[in-house]
Amino acid sequence: MSQEFPESGVGASLPTRAIVALGSNLAGGYASPVELLEAALSFFPGAGLPVLRRSCWWRSSAWPDPSGNEYRNGVAIVEARMDAGATIGRLLEIEARFGRSRGERNADRTLDLDLIDHAGLVMQSPRLTLPHPRAHERGFVMGPLSEIAPDWRHPGLGLTASELAASASVARDARPAR
Rank of each mutant, 00 (worst) to 15 (best):
A96E: 13
F5M: 08
T160W: 02
G156I: 00
G89S: 12
A76D: 04
A149P: 04
E4L: 15
R175K: 14
R72G: 03
A12R: 14
C56V: 13
H118Q: 06
N73Q: 07
P64A: 08
S167D: 07
H132Y: 10
A27E: 10
G156W: 00
D117A: 04
A62T: 01
R127S: 11
H136Y: 12
A12F: 08
R17G: 05
G9H: 14
L113Q: 07
Y71C: 02
L22A: 07
G9P: 08
Y30I: 03
L159S: 08
V51Q: 07
F43D: 15
L115Y: 00
V10W: 13
V34Q: 14
G103I: 11
A12L: 13
E93V: 05
W58Y: 15
P126A: 14
F43T: 07
L164S: 14
A177I: 01
P15G: 09
I116Y: 02
S32R: 11
L159I: 00
G28S: 03
R175F: 03
A168S: 14
L164E: 13
D117N: 06
S60F: 04
H118F: 14
A84W: 04
D173Y: 14
R100T: 04
V10A: 15
A166H: 11
G139V: 11
P33L: 10
A80S: 15
E70G: 02
P126R: 09
N25Y: 03
E147Y: 04
I94V: 15
R127F: 04
H154T: 01
C56F: 02
R81P: 02
I88N: 00
S42T: 13
D117I: 01
E38Q: 15
S169D: 06
W58K: 07
S146E: 13
E38I: 11
P66H: 08
G23D: 05
D83F: 01
E95R: 14
A168E: 02
E163S: 13
F140R: 05
R175G: 10
N106Q: 00
A18I: 00
G85S: 12
A135N: 07
G28K: 04
H154V: 04
R100W: 02
D117R: 02
R178F: 11
G156H: 00
N73E: 06
R100V: 03
N25A: 05
S146G: 06
V122W: 00
L22Q: 09
D108F: 03
R175L: 05
T110V: 10
H118A: 14
S146N: 09
H118V: 06
E93L: 09
R109E: 03
G48K: 09
D173L: 15
M142K: 11
S55D: 08
L92G: 02
D114H: 07
A31N: 07
R97G: 13
G85H: 08
A96P: 01
R100S: 03
M82I: 10
G158F: 04
A39D: 13
P144H: 11
A96D: 12
I94E: 12
M123T: 15
P45S: 07
P45L: 06
W152G: 07
P155K: 08
A119L: 10
P15L: 05
A149Q: 06
A149Y: 05
G156C: 04
A31D: 15
P150H: 05
A27N: 10
S13L: 10
A31K: 12
